[in-house]
Design a protein around this nucleic acid. Structure first.
Lengths: 151, 151
DNA sequence: AAAATGAAATTACAGTTGTAAACAAAAGGC
DNA sequence: GCCTTTTGTTTACAACTGTAATTTCATTTT
């Protein structure tokens, strides 16, 4: 199910993307001004980041008089999903539940979010196993026999 | 509430940590053997990673005859929590709910995990707002007036 | 004790990231 | 059409990462 070429966006770059995702499009000056306080970045720094994001294909640039307007090439939700996938893949499946608890604890969620999450969990409950084994040791792989690449 | 000095563990290093967390302690050879298949790393690579982890303070080394046995200096759950905190901080609060849904969808959770998550969400529901505003634009900061560092 | 072995430490090296200055190009003002 | 201002492009540079070979050091075996 891997389609997108991952499009690795670094932490600093992510800050820039958030602005442009929110505004739909923005000049580098706009981004600079908005991030100046929060990040204490010089305009030059923002320009570098914007340039890298264009090169990576995360932003597209449209000329607008003397400057460019930058637009996202992928949606924020899509990027967040990809990032969360990569995040989850890296962690012990046995302990991921506790980690999700932690994340939910420290996040503000809307009534609707919570309702959706509860519904999803209730559905999941129907087929959930008693225990999720730790998958940190490669040889304890739990894949279907025959399908597993590792064995 | 920031206590730990973050202790930045890279992706490749994380693979090593998972093995040692799971075994409690391990020689670099053990780690090599376990990761050889999964990661196609040479023994030298694993040694580099182990060395860096010791330098970073993520592992401690105890002599054991000719070699060392390495032990985690922080718990896996703690490291996962720190990682998840950093992950969440970087994302749009408005869209984090959908991202959590995505994570839950693609994760296998135990009955107990699901039960705990549901309870937590039900409690959270009591004080949850109707909408969580996007916090991507610094000037739309939602902090308490007076407490906010940004304004 | 010398040799062989196995592990750790040092060195390597290119790519990414954070942070930015310097330089170049384009557009608008005069 | 030339100058200035704004914006983009190139260059910089150190730290961190992924990946490993080489060298050194400690151990075990003859």
């Amino acid at each position: 199910m891997e389609i997108s070429p991952a499009l690795n966006i670094s932490n600093a770059e992510w800050q820039v993307m958030r602005i442009i995702w929110t505004l739909g499009q923005a000049s580098s000056q706009t981004v600079s001004q908005l991030l100046a306080k929060k990040m204490a970045w010089k305009a030059a720094t923002v320009k570098t980041l914007v340039g890298r994001l264009v090169k990576k294909g995360a932003l597209t640039a449209k000329r607008d008089g003397k400057r460019y307007l930058y637009q996202p090439a992928i949606s924020e939700q899509q990027a967040m999903n990809t990032a969360s996938e990569m995040f989850v893949e890296q962690l012990c499946q046995h302990k991921i539940g506790k980690t999700l608890e932690k994340m939910i604890q420290e996040t503000t969620l809307s009534q609707q979010d919570i309702q959706d999450l509860i519904s999803m969990l209730q559905a999941k409950q129907k087929t959930a196993p008693k225990e999720v084994p730790c998958n940190c040791l490669p040889n304890k792989c739990q894949c279907q026999p025959g399908t597993c690449q590792q064995n």
